[in-house]
Design a protein around this nucleic acid. Structure first.
Length: 465
RNA sequence: GGCGGGGUAGCCAAGUGGUAAGGCCGGGCUCUGCAAAAGCCCUAUGCGUGGGUUCAAUUCCCACCCCCGCCUCCA
């Protein structure tokens, strides 16, 4: 659905500025997002980033583009190996389980499944080929232990994305002891030689048994599925350095091409003003949110709208309650106009067109959803007013379709359980007799179940609360 | 130390050189048997602090104070 014709502007980390977005081969947009490392349940901070990628894809569609998206699963690294060992499971089995949980959570949050979701372990051959190319061109070298390292000194642009000076890369506390094998501290592993801790995990390579380094998987898979040059590469801000910096170095050195044209990064989240950490006990999963009586739609709305994607978002339960209330208001509006006869929706309405124009203009400004939502709520109030007055309405079904193609809220979950249906009919009977006392006590009973009942000209209406 | 992000009403948040969108919460009114929903009205002479530029600054400049992130494998 192409509803937006304005030029789309996106903030490119490469230039640190907003740029007008033009894909390489319109209307196709080839997009790569760094996916999760599947060693445990993903937390809501992870999902903020995936929600951002989802928003981007949805906006691209609304602007007439045809995004083709790829998101990888990192299913082999120190953490996955350690987790498999701890669970006494084969690596493959452990990662399969967490991928399953992750995809369930995506569904809960109405995140569109990326078109392709390649696993690192299914593409070892591609990675080996890429490493061989880098070796051939002198951008990599084999260490004494059979590990292969990328030589950052061979790539003059190293550090451009992160705005880091190569000379400023000093050995830090986190440098492992085996790092003396490298020519320079900034050099990073393309291939890691097998160690005892790796157990069963390992693949044969020209340099002996081992496994790929982290960065190389994204280079290999993104270029394999999207080409040596593609449109957008995104992920969380933390990935700018070193992950994306290293991806750029590997990919450009291997191919001589420019790799991704746009780099988009989503800022991190805090919980109650503090960084999420296991010790603070503030690392929440989607399941934790659902357990508190919220739905995926509430969390989606909060994570998407509480702050612009390049702004730190502070998660609080109070904020989630506010998001729930806002979603409830949208739902009420939705249910309200949907009950109206079709002739109430005027075919031509400048009101509707004006709203969509504003909505698009906001999104075109680097996905300014807060601003876009401001327009939406003004529109919502205006249409509610029209309904009150019995005035003609814009083509709400069509406008909502465009709107929700971005918001992704979908339908409220208001299927009435049978036992409530029973209370409802008893209440209807009581109301017939004008037995207000009975009517009110039944309303209280229904409220106990987490629903609210309202009396309209058409009879009773139930809403989940 | 280097690089970067931020401080706007009770909470969240957009934004602009010309006098502060929107959401949540709260209050009043209309409607209702009562509610709910909806609508209307109210809720920052003010945008971290102090200077400066300007006819005019929250928006530009300077200084200062706070908060946060990254700087080798964390979305």
């Amino acid at each position: 659905m192409t509803r937006c014709r304005t030029p789309l502007h996106l903030f490119n980390t490469l230039s640190r500025s907003r740029e007008e977005f033009h894909p390489i081969a319109p209307p196709k947009v080839r997009l790569y997002a760094c996916g999760p490392t599947v060693y445990g349940r993903a937390h809501i901070g992870n999902f903020r980033t995936f929600l951002f990628v989802d928003l981007l894809r949805r906006v691209l569609r609304l602007f007439g583009f045809e995004p083709e998206s790829v998101m990888n699963y990192t299913d082999v690294d120190d953490k996955t190996i350690a987790a498999a060992e701890a669970a006494s499971l084969p690596l493959r089995e452990l990662t399969r389980r967490y991928i399953e949980l992750f995809e369930e959570d995506l569904q809960t949050l109405h995140i569109l499944l990326p078109d392709r979701r390649p696993k690192a372990t299914d593409h070892i051959g591609l990675m080996i080929a890429l490493i061989e190319e880098l070796l051939r061109k002198g951008h990599a070298y084999v260490g004494e232990d059979g590990s292969v390292y990328f030589r950052i000194g061979s790539f003059p642009d190293y550090g451009k994305l992160a705005h880091l000076d190569r000379g400023g890369l000093q050995p830090g506390a986190r440098i492992a002891q085996d790092e003396y094998l490298k020519e320079s501290v900034g050099d990073f592993a393309l291939w890691k030689a097998w160690k005892a801790e790796d157990g069963e995990v390992g693949w044969a390579s020209p340099w002996g048994r081992g496994r790929p380094g982290w960065h190389v998987e994204c280079s290999a898979m993104s270029m394999h599925y999207l080409g040596e040059e593609f449109d957008i590469h995104c992920g969380g801000t933390d990935l700018i350095f070193p992950h994306h910096e290293n991806e750029i170095a590997q990919s450009r050195c291997a191919t001589g091409k420019s790799f991704a044209h746009f780099w988009l990064h989503c800022s991190h989240m805090l919980v109650d003003g503090e960084k999420m950490s296991k010790s603070l006990g503030n690392v929440y999963s989607v399941a934790d949110i659902l357990a508190q009586g919220y739905t995926g739609r509430h969390l989606r709305f909060l994570l998407l709208t509480a702050a612009h994607y390049r702004q730190t978002l502070n998660f609080t339960w109070e904020g989630l309650a506010a998001a729930k209330a806002a979603v409830g208001r949208i739902d009420d509006w939705l249910v309200r106009w949907r009950s109206l006869p079709p002739e109430r929706f005027a075919a031509a309405s400048s009101e509707g067109e004006e709203f969509l124009t504003r909505f698009c203009a906001s999104l075109a400004d680097d996905l300014n959803l807060s601003d876009a939502l401001g327009h939406f709520f003004e529109f919502l109030r205006a249409t509610n007013r029209s309904i009150d007055l019995g005035a003609p309405l814009p083509d709400l079904p069509e406008i909502w379709c465009a709107l929700d193609s971005v918001l992704g809220l979908g339908e409220p979950d208001d299927t009435v359980p049978p036992h409530l249906q029973e209370l409802l009919s008893r209440r209807a009977a009581a109301r017939q007799r004008r037995d207000w006392k009975e009517s009110d006590s039944l309303r209280a009973a229904i409220k106990q179940e987490g629903w609210s009942v309202r009396d309209t000209a058409q009879g009773q209406e139930l809403r989940r609360r």
